[in-house]
């Protein structure tokens, strides 16, 4: 039996994990192996940051779904968490008019075929204009602001744009979307910074081939191919480090797994309820 069966669901998180560490990918997404080692020294703070990120996403979703702004404001004012309140107030200043006012979908899951496998994206917000434009907005609560270039090269960017270009017409019920009319916006709540990343037909074709190659490579790999990363700095904040014998990995705060964990937790909530 194949290790990864046809129909396996890949996501930007699992692909990103694979690219950073094949062993972590195997343990987390295939073996679903619990290994309850603290990711960081201050575990309470780490967990609080995860919880704050989830709450922020929930509040934003509520706002976009039309829940009364006064009610949301009261909740934010009473939360007792300065960072969360600051993010919320920052969101209040986000100019929603930059995204199309046509069809707006919140927390939208899309899954498209990729060879024999599937690719999953869950959009915080995706907005379509009647004239064929589509904009993805992703709210970020990262502790550090990456560069525009890093975000453009991110697996998430490629997966989200590719999935929307492939299946956006299912959402709109119209003609297939033209990739050159797609855009992805990352908005960083702690910094009130926004990165806009355009898309193109050429990138769509290139991403399709690259993503397909990647999932086929993963699916064809024997168990022994899922080896720990060659960059031990990746291991410092990985909970599997003692399983891999990498307890003493050098620390590099820019290489934590926090963003993945926030998104993974959001996905997991859904996975528990089998929404995809």
């Amino acid at each position: 039996m194949a290790l990864i069966e046809a129909g396996h669901l890949f996501s930007q998180h699992s692909l990103n994990t694979y690219l950073r560490c094949k062993r972590r990918f195997w343990l987390k997404y295939i073996a679903q192996q619990p290994w309850p080692m603290p990711e960081q020294e201050n575990l309470s703070e780490y967990q609080a940051h995860l919880a704050r990120g989830r709450t922020f996403h929930q509040w934003v979703a509520r706002a976009l779904l039309g829940v009364d702004a006064d009610l949301l404001g009261q909740a934010a004012a009473a939360c007792g968490d300065e960072a969360l309140l600051a993010w919320w107030l920052a969101f209040g200043r986000f100019d929603l008019s930059i995204v199309p006012e046509g069809l707006r979908e919140v927390e939208l899951p899309l899954i498209v075929p990729l060879g024999e496998y599937r690719l999953y994206a869950r959009y915080d917000l995706v907005a379509f204009s009647p004239s064929g434009e589509a904009v993805i907005v992703d709210w970020k609560t990262l502790e550090r602001l990456p560069s525009w270039r890093v975000m453009r090269e991110r697996v998430q960017t490629r997966v989200y744009l590719y999935v929307l270009a492939s299946a956006g017409h299912i959402v709109t019920g119209g003609a297939p979307l033209d990739p050159s009319r797609l855009e992805m916006i990352y908005w960083f709540a702690p910094f009130e910074e926004m990165f806009r990343i355009p898309y193109s037909r050429r990138e769509f074709q290139a991403h399709r081939q690259a993503l397909l190659r990647l999932v086929e490579e993963i699916a064809a790999s024997p168990p022994e191919a899922f080896v720990p990363t060659e960059n031990p700095r990746e291991c410092a904040f990985c909970n599997y480090r003692s399983l891999c014998g990498r307890q003493e990995a050098p620390r590099d705060p820019s290489l934590n797994w926090l963003d993945e964990e926030i998104d993974f937790a959001l996905d997991l909530d859904e996975a528990i309820e089998m929404t995809y």
């Binding site: 899309l110 498209v112 299912i170 309820e273 089998m274």
Partner: peptide, 9 residues
Amino acid sequence: PTRGGAEIV
């Protein structure tokens, strides 16, 4: 065109 996203709950 898509392989999921249906709410099975």
